[in-house]
Amino acid sequence: MSITRDDVAHVAELARLAMTDEELDEMHGHFGAILEHFARLAAVDTEGVEPTFHPLVRRNVTRPDQIRPPMDRSKLLANAPSADDECFLAPQIMEDE
């Protein structure tokens, strides 16, 4: 399967990565090379083979739903690029009327 430069631009959009033209060219080249490796998988007969999403078979793990003290809010907010005393501050997403 080959991939066009426009496809790469679309993937960048999905991945939320803003890319310059130069970066898109470089990434397009990389995709070309790595897809050659991926294409080799098509030759493997996997008829009736179950996928391994986790290497070791595990059952679901549950625990009692108990109330525990949360992390300290001010400590968490201290890492935020923008915050007030209570909340993370995000950029405005609605246009002014």
Partner: peptide
């Protein structure tokens, strides 16, 4: 991130990601 996003994106999931997980079983 780009390779992974592509492998998981609509239309390619079965051919790439799922196929890889099956070969992983082998």
């Amino acid at each position: 991130i780009m390779t992974g996003t592509y492998a998981l994106s609509a239309g390619y999931y079965d051919a790439y990601y799922l196929k890889a997980q099956k070969v992983r079983t082998l």
